[in-house]
């Protein structure tokens, strides 16, 4: 942009010439960018704007075509108790899974990064959940959770604990889903932390060690500040994931019983592709896009000041 500053602030006899050279200056970068601009416009921005536009219309049904409804879809959304319920579920889901999986991932990364015996095995077992599709993970955990003869009840019965019906009661079903998500996501985030930890020069820790820092102090004062960019990156990813990764709901609970484990996107899916109430689903999509944008931007903005970029 700096080059354009040289444009004279008065009407120059060479104005046409300057315009020409400005155009020449911009043309090559624009041409180079154009493939990605076209792709982004076609597949991201135009659909997003179109979605917002569609959210003001009703769902076409049978012989009744779609008609303009203004904000009615949004009013329906606000009046829908199920919407608030799944939004609440999603908030609980996010504020539990995100910190838990990040903390566990960091602990696992530290373990794997230290000189423990059996490191390759640890690395493999922590990473295993990552390579499994979430829908399959859901299936595996379905068996863990089975009342009476599932893994959890079998272990529990060794200690004389009563049987559970984790996915069959309203108080526990969401926690069952939360557990699966933490198990699945932690291994994934561990990879990023591991890369970040290995990027910290060994000298730094040794210098601190010689200066008398305990392991905890080294972690708290050296390691943690140096991996804040990774923590920020992961928390953005984790927040988005908490709102968009719902495959396990399909294999485990279908959002039930009575929406107790339904998340926003699952309810959106149900409205769109089970109830075929597309207009309502579109309004929810707009809500989800806005929500995620606010969260993402806010997170980066908020943490930027405390993040140390090397």
């Amino acid at each position: 942009m700096k080059q354009t500053v040289s444009l004279a602030p008065f009407a120059s006899p060479f104005a046409g010439h300057v315009e020409m050279s400005k155009f020449r200056k911009f043309l090559p970068p624009f041409l180079l960018l154009s493939p990605s601009i076209v792709l982004l416009l076609t597949f991201v921005h135009i659909p997003a704007i179109h979605t917002i536009y569609l959210s003001f219309f009703s769902t076409p049904k049978g012989r009744r075509p779609s008609k303009f409804k203004g904000l009615e879809n949004y009013q329906d959304m606000i009046a829908d108790p199920v919407f608030w319920k799944v939004l609440g579920n999603n908030v609980i889901y996010a504020i539990t899974t995100i910190p838990a999986s990040i903390i566990i991932a960091l602990i696992m990364a530290q373990l794997v990064n230290s000189a423990l015996p059996g490191r390759p095995f640890l690395r493999f077992s922590f990473f295993l959940p990552v390579v499994l599709p979430l829908i399959a993970v859901g299936n595996i955990w379905l068996f863990f959770y089975l009342p009476g003869f599932g893994l959890i009840d079998q272990i529990g019965s060794l200690f004389g604990l009563p049987n559970t019906n984790i996915l069959g009661s309203s108080e526990t079903v969401l926690w069952g889903i939360v557990g699966v998500s933490i198990w699945k996501e932690s291994g994934f985030y561990m990879i990023f932390f591991l890369a970040a930890l290995q990027g910290i020069p060994r000298d730094l820790k040794e210098a601190a060690y010689i200066e008398g820092a305990s392991n905890w102090q080294i972690f708290r004062r050296i390691t943690l500040p140096l991996i804040t960019p990774t923590i920020l990156f992961i928390s953005v990813i984790a927040t988005i994931n908490a709102f968009i990764r719902i495959e396990h709901l399909f294999s485990m609970t279908q959002g039930g019983p009575n929406y107790n484990s339904a998340l926003l996107l699952y309810y959106l899916y149900e409205n769109a592709f089970v109830f075929w109430d597309t207009a309502y689903a579109i309004a929810q999509s707009v809500f989800l896009i806005v929500l995620l944008s606010i969260i993402g931007i806010g997170q980066i903005f908020l943490m930027d000041r405390r993040v140390h970029y090397q």
Binding site: D203, E206, A207, A208, E211, R221, P225
Partner: peptide
């Protein structure tokens, strides 16, 4: 006390904090 070839300065701390780190510990 040891001085490393790479200096091993803590990149996220100011010079003051780098020098004072040991005292702080």
């Amino acid at each position: 006390a040891m001085v490393f070839q790479s200096y091993a300065l803590y990149p996220h701390m100011t010079v003051f904090d780098n020098i004072g780190f040991g005292l702080r510990l």
